[in-house]
Amino acid sequence: MTVRAAARPDGSGGPAGWVPWSLVALVVVPAAAGSLRLAELSGGPRLMPDNPAMTASPMPVVVHIISAILYAVLGAFQFSARFRRRRPGRHRSAGRVLVVLGLAVAFSALWMTLFYPRQPGTGALLYIFRLAFGSGMAAAIILGVAAIRHGDVARHLAWMTRAYALALGAGTQVSTQGIGNAVFGASEVTTTLMLGAGWAINLTVAEYIIRRHGGSRIRATAEVGSS
């Protein structure tokens, strides 16, 4: 093992060891809201805003919530370079599961967008945003799978990072929508723009990570694997 590779932060136990846990923390609020919705759909008390479409056709939302929580939590640790180096078999096995979960998240979101009636306070622009970002997540996962099948690890990590960033949009939207409502007041325009901002912020951060750190992480993994 080279000293240079060993000294790099690896995202799991060194200087960047907080990264997976911070990603998990980002989804605590939407995961809690999703859990309340699941409890409601299973006959529990109504604590969430009423949505007759979900009550009439609960399967898509159940699939979406369960898949999204598992994808967010399990996916966070796939970005640990130490985990990839020390447990490559588990990384690949978890990756296969995450592909299924991620596609379930994306396609269930698209199904609800296309077939559930629009909720009050949402408009055409939010409808377009949901179609675009849901399709983008599915496409990123498919491109990530295609890349690794061709042995292109850097491109694989890049596309999977983008897919994960889109999946975590709900976590960032808790903040963007809260700030937007506090500053501009609650309205259809504010809701739409702040939800869009959540996805846009996550994609911007993902692109920054891909361009600034992606190459060094790939080199570190390759050096350790070949030593």
Rank of each mutant, 00 (worst) to 15 (best):
G185S: 12
T161R: 12
T176R: 14
T176I: 06
A163Q: 11
A146M: 11
V153C: 01
V153Q: 10
G178M: 11
A154M: 10
T161A: 15
A147Q: 05
V153L: 15
A154E: 11
I142M: 07
V174K: 05
G136R: 01
G144N: 02
R162Q: 05
I179N: 00
V153N: 06
Q173P: 02
G169L: 11
A170Y: 06
T172Y: 01
A182K: 06
H156Q: 03
A146D: 10
E188Q: 15
A140V: 02
N181A: 15
V183M: 08
A182W: 09
A138C: 06
G185I: 07
G169W: 13
M137N: 07
A163G: 10
A182Y: 06
G151I: 11
G185E: 07
T172P: 03
T172S: 12
S175Y: 15
G178N: 09
A146L: 13
T176P: 06
I141W: 08
A147E: 13
V153P: 00
I179R: 03
A158F: 08
M160Y: 04
A158P: 03
L143Q: 10
N181F: 15
R149I: 06
G180C: 04
V153A: 11
G151V: 07
A158Y: 09
S175N: 05
L166I: 11
R149F: 01
G134W: 08
S135M: 13
G134P: 00
N181D: 12
L157I: 08
A140H: 09
A140W: 03
A139G: 01
L166A: 07
G180D: 00
R162G: 06
V174A: 14
H156N: 12
R162C: 08
Y164A: 09
I142L: 14
L166T: 13
L166K: 05
A182S: 12
L168K: 04
M160I: 14
D152I: 10
M137R: 00
A165T: 01
V183K: 04
S175V: 15
A139R: 02
L168P: 00
A165G: 05
F184L: 15
A165M: 06
A186Y: 02
Q173I: 15
Q177H: 13
H150T: 12
M160W: 13
H156S: 12
A167N: 05
A170T: 13
Y164Q: 14
G169E: 11
